[in-house]
Nucleic acid binder design. Sequence first.
DNA 1: TCTGGGGTCCTAGGACCC
DNA 2: TCTGGGGTCCTAGGACCC
Length: 432
Amino acid sequence: MGSGYECNSRGLIMPIFALLDCNNFYASCERLFNPSLNNKPIVVLSNNDGCIIARSNEAKALGIPMGEPYYKAKSIIENNNVAVFSSNYTLYGDMSRRVMATVKGFIPDVEIYSIDEVFMDLSNYPNPEGLSKDIRQAVTLWTGIPVSIGIGSSKTLAKVANHIAKKYTAYEGVFHIDSEDRRKKVLKHFAVGDVWGVGRRLNKKLTSYGVNTAYDLSIQPDSWVRKSMTVVGLKTVQELRGESCIELELKPEHKKMITVSRSFGRKVYEKSSIKEALANFAERAAEKLRGEKQLTKEIYISLYKELAASGKANYKDNALLKLAYPTDSTLELMSYVSKAFDEIYIEGMGYKKCGIDLLKLQPKSHFVKDLFDTRNTCKQDELMVAIDSINNKMGNNTIQMATSRGKGKWVAKKDLKSLCYTTRWDELAIVG
DNA sequence: TCTGGGGTCCTAGGACCC
DNA sequence: TCTGGGGTCCTAGGACCC
């Protein structure tokens, strides 16, 4: 306590990681702008209003499971007056930025791990626990989002500690695995399936071998772990023992792929509708790509059809396009996608979903035009910059390519979406 | 054409995460 | 057992080479 450094059994200095995680993030965001929902159950639905992806504590207490299809939970929801929202990613993204900005005000060295989680390196701070309490308080005060913080000598242990901080209110939202005794005690009561890196599949396998708790896993021999969980699992196990193997990623690496895909609200047969959807996705993907300041060299197009007869739910038709020259132009992407689509589309087929991936990305700054490249890239760049800046200022889709704007038969259902309280002038929250 | 052994590169698919 | 969309990483296996 007090030095800011922990030592392991060999007397080596160990790093200190903290993980801040927003409690029931999406549900908390919705509640923020609707105080009448305080202490009331809330659920948030996935795209397409398909299933439940976030629940307030009250909704969890009602026994509504995570990932439950909406229609299955409908009776519980109606009987208990549960507030239901379609997901509103604009709102969540904006609230996330506010939370992260608050954290960065305390700790400059952070890794934003997901929309509602951030890892911090507290190795050089004398009182990690006190500091975490201050951060937690500031985030609550300045953003209204409740958060929990877990502290440990590896990222995996910080994750475990975070679970404890959330579960046991007596710790007031901050829990530190600060000794060997505490580490063992905690891991012995921690289900192996809840460990970061152990998914459904591995959980099943491990429990079948009698490895039920995180502690059980942590004492397995390396060779066995390597064999049954690959090198990834070995890292997890070492981290559970308190040895840090997964470093903080302070600077986000360049993205390796960009995906835009969507399920349709229903089966879609019209060629023009699917083409319109793909054009939309190409547009979105190109925007993301330019936002990342990268170019793409490969486009992967997938159409998902439903094969009722085969028992298999989804069957996929793909096309992989390798581009002669890397690009970030919406126009080029759209024309490639459109041509490839014509080749894989089957007349009369009912499609349930489609999407595109951009692969083999490379930084735009590294691009050198060669003699055989006859594209007018400068002119396209100017056009794209103009479109992006207008769309940024005036809202998405202010300017859109004609092929991507249509009747929108493919558009997903979003019946219960809340307003964009923080990002759109016309939907600002009204105080009064 | 198979006979051996060894190596690299690429892709598809699986498993995990939020 | 797929209910959603967007990611990353690892491995097995095929193609191809000597």
